[in-house]
Nucleic acid binder design. Sequence first.
DNA 1: CATGTTATTATGTATGAACATAAAAGCATG
DNA 2: CATGCTTTTATGTTCATACATAATAACATG
Lengths: 233, 233
Amino acid sequence: MNVQTAQTWQSVQKEVLRRIHARDWKPGDLIPNETELAKEFGCARTTVNRALRSLAEGGLLERRRKAGTRVAAQPVAKATLNIAVIRHEVEDRGARYGYQLARREVRIAPTHISATLGVCVQDRLLHVMALHLSNDAPYALEDRWINAVHVPDALKQDFQSISANEWLLQNVPYTRGEISFSAKPASAENANYLNCPENSALLAVDRLTWDHDQSVTVVQVLFAPGHQMRTRI
Amino acid sequence: MNVQTAQTWQSVQKEVLRRIHARDWKPGDLIPNETELAKEFGCARTTVNRALRSLAEGGLLERRRKAGTRVAAQPVAKATLNIAVIRHEVEDRGARYGYQLARREVRIAPTHISATLGVCVQDRLLHVMALHLSNDAPYALEDRWINAVHVPDALKQDFQSISANEWLLQNVPYTRGEISFSAKPASAENANYLNCPENSALLAVDRLTWDHDQSVTVVQVLFAPGHQMRTRI
DNA sequence: CATGTTATTATGTATGAACATAAAAGCATG
DNA sequence: CATGCTTTTATGTTCATACATAATAACATG
């Protein structure tokens, strides 16, 4: 019953975290309710709420009205990966960024692409392929289809000096998207661009974005062999 | 100056989002300050604060004291991957989970492992290798080293029926960790366990966890070819 | 005993007021 | 003109209070 002073929500959170890590409160345990904790810490319930809510967002606590707050039995580690503009990614690593447009064409897309984008099979889409370089070495290969029906402005861009990656982010809004991570063997073409042996294991990031119910773009980014995406948990 | 009614922080957030998506407020733009928005929406500043803060956490807004709030020029998409217990992952997909212990040994670790875990090279660590199955097909191969100096209880476990993955999460706390995603070619041994051709492209998830300044475990999970980790953004 | 209704309770949210704090902008001083 | 101090301002946070809501627990009723 140590009444504390100088209560900020961070200090409350820190103390709660300490108790969880020290196993005072074990996974699955119900912890005291907000009112009791507020009394113990000598602060307002609002402050305790702020501290616990943010821990719950991180997956460490599970909260339910009336049922109370408990320590997550099996905390699902949430790995948050920042998918930034590739140029920034390279520059943040302190490397010199380079960009090469490999292909730009307006054409009818393969059926799996038009199906994914939800457009008619005979719609002409913009296909852009580009290589991103880090200190002149291949860094990532971007293979993108843009829904030119919904984004006609894209047709005016030649993507010679600015990547579609960057142009879209600056100019075309999207409201939602899907992203998936997988490993893929390098095709002959991939290997040629990325300057690696054919069938090398490549990290692939596939993205599909929508603006309300209109698809915007679908893209696959293949990273050069050995590439890692890292984060803390 | 439409004065709204029934203000919840969610409705404020929704309206702010609408304006961003409609490009009323464009990337890089400074938006009205909290006091003004509160007046416009007819709610308390606290409510506006809650709405904007949560958008800022998601990376869509950038806020700085005195400088104000602006729409992120290049919203960094934050892909949050849930790294759950593998058994749950399989079961959530509606498949039958299976588990096979492949190896369990207490031995001196390769130097890169003891270095990673920050233990003495001659410390004996627990090495566990196990195969996770989905509907009897190989799903993921777990290759793990446990810091037996810090987690002596692990030595008592045979890991015949419960995976180290699950046992650790239930029994050993950690305060922080690192996680990285990459693509790797299957070694002969990998290929044997995962029942795939040698050099297949495999998605690899590497995790390293710490309890304060003691390392807990380092693990590599290799997923069977074709595996995808998905999320919405 | 099963089932539906009601009370209770813990979290969730809104409010206005107050003060804290970071950072920009203005100002003074050498 | 450079440098350091002061003011101003927008966000950040705390608080007490009040009411909303979901979900459990208690109760009544057939």
